[in-house]
C-alpha cells in the first residue's frame, strides 16, 4: 500500500510517500520538507499568518516533488494521511483542504492524524521497536512523556506545566545575547564550557514527579545575569551550566517513568532530541538501568510528513477513513 502523507501544522509544509503492508513495517519512498526558516528567522520564530500564506504557495510543488522523488504518480497512491492538529489553524487548514481535494478527486480514503502521534511513532520509520515503549517528545512547543502501548493507544504520563524545553533554550539564548535558534547555539557553546561553574536549581514538582517545569530556570538565568556575580563568568560556562540543568530536568522524570514500565526502550523525539548533551547523558543514565535510548534521524525528529503517513497507515490498512467534513483542531488532544 502506498500512502501519501501531508503535514502543515506549523511553518514546514511537508509531503511524503511511504510503502507499507503491515502496521509498523514501512519503507519511506520519499520525504520532502519545504522549510520557511528564512521567512521567520527575523522574527525569532514562526509568525502564524505568514506561515499559512506561504503554505498556500508551497504545498502543491512539495507534493509534486515527493511524488517525483518516490517515482510514482497520484494514480499509484492508495490512501492519504494528513495532520489535523494540534497546530496553527491557518497552517493546518492548507494541508487538510489539499488532502480533502485529492481524496475527493481521486476517490481515495483519507485519515486525519494527530501531529503528536506522528512524533511518537517516528522512530518506527527506521527501527523495529517492541511496544510498549516510552517516548519523550521535546521541542519548541512540546515537552511531554507518553507510553506508546500500541498503534492508536497512547497514554500521557507527564508534561510541562509552563514553558517547553526548546522555548527555554531560545529564551535563555536571547537573555545571553546569543543567536537564534538558541538550542543549537547553546549546544555548541556548552562543549567548551564547565557545566559545574554555576549552581542552578533543578525544578521538581511536588506530587507530580513526571511533570516538567522550565520557567524557573529561565528566571534563575535572568536573575543571575542581573547580579554582580555574572561579570566574571564566561558565556561558555553559563551555557553549559544551563544546558546541564535542563538535561537533568528532562532525564529525571523520563527515568522515573521508565522504571515503572515494562519496557526496554526510551525514544526521544522532537527538535530538542538533536541536543548532543541530552543524547549522551540520557543514553548513559538509561544504560545503567538496562534501557536503550533511540532517537530518529534528525530529519524525522523535526516536523516531516513521513511520520504522519506512518501514523495514518494503520487505520488505512484496516480500511478506515474519515469523512471529508473533517475539521482542523488547534488544540487537538491525543
Amino acid at each position: 500500500m502506498l500512502i501519501l502523507g501531508i503535514e502543515s501544522s506549523c511553518d514546514d509544509a511537508a509531503c511524503a510517500v511511504i510503502e507499507t503492508a503491515e502496521p509498523g513495517n514501512v519503507s519511506v519512498r520519499a520525504s520532502v520538507v519545504a522549510n520557511q526558516d528564512e521567512i521567520h528567522r527575523r522574527y525569532g520564530g514562526v509568525v502564524p499568518e505568514l506561515a499559512s500564506r506561504n503554505h498556500l504557495i508551497t504545498i502543491l510543488p512539495v507534493i509534486e516533488d515527493a511524488l517525483g522523488a518516490a517515482g510514482c504518480g497520484l494514480g499509484d497512491i492508495h490512501g492519504i494521511a494528513v495532520t489535523r492538529g494540534p497546530g496553527l489553524v491557518g497552517s493546518l487548514l492548507v494541508g487538510l483542504m489539499c488532502a480533502k481535494g485529492l481524496a475527493q478527486a481521486l476517490n481515495l480514503p483519507m485519515v486525519g492524524v494527530n501531529h503528536l502521534e506522528g512524533h511518537l511513532l517516528a522512530p518506527l520509520l527506521e527501527h523495529r521497536i517492541t511496544m510498549p515503549y516510552l517516548a519523550l517528545v521535546v521541542s519548541g512547543g512540546h515537552t511531554a512523556l507518553f507510553v506508546v502501548e500500541d498503534f492508536g493507544k497512547y497514554r500521557e504520563l507527564g508534561r510541562t506545566r509552563d514553558d517547553a524545553a526548546g522555548e527555554a533554550f531560545d529564551k535563555v539564548a536571547k537573555l545571553m545575547g546569543l543567536g537564534y535558534p538558541g538550542g543549537r547555539v547553546i549546544d555548541e557553546l556548552s562543549r567548551r564550557g564547565d557545566a559545574r561553574r554555576i549552581r542552578l536549581p533543578r525544578a521538581r514538582l511536588r506530587g507530580a514527579p513526571l511533570d516538567f517545569s522550565f520557567s524557573g530556570i529561565k528566571t534563575a538565568i535572568a536573575t543571575f545575569l542581573a547580579s554582580p556575580d555574572s561579570g566574571g563568568v564566561a558565556s561558555e560556562d553559563l551555557a553549559a551550566s544551563f544546558q546541564e540543568a535542563v538535561v537533568d530536568m528532562l532525564i529525571r522524570p523520563t527515568l522515573a517513568a521508565a522504571r515503572n514500565l515494562a519496557t526496554e526502550t526510551i525514544v526521544i523525539t522532537g527538535g530538542v532530541a538533536a541536543n548532543s548533551r541530552l543524547r549522551v547523558k540520557l543514553t548513559e543514565a538509561a544504560a545503567n538501568e538496562g534501557l536503550r535510548v533511540l532517537a530518529p534521524a534528525f530529519k524525522f525528529c523535526t516536523d516531516n510528513a513521513a511520520m504522519i503517513a506512518l501514523a495514518g497507515s494503520y487505520r488505512l490498512l484496516r480500511g478506515e477513513r474519515d469523512a471529508l467534513d473533517l475539521d482542523a483542531e488547534a488544540n487537538l488532544a491525543l
Binding site: G45, V46, V47, P48, L88, G140, G141, T160, R161, D162, D163, A164, G166, E167, D170, K171, S215, A330, N331
Partner: peptide
C-alpha cells in the same frame, strides 16, 4: 491553571 502554558510558540492559546 496547569493547562495554561507559555504561548510563545503558538502565539495564541484559547
Amino acid at each position: 491553571e496547569d493547562r495554561v502554558l507559555s504561548p510563545t510558540f503558538t502565539m495564541i492559546q484559547e
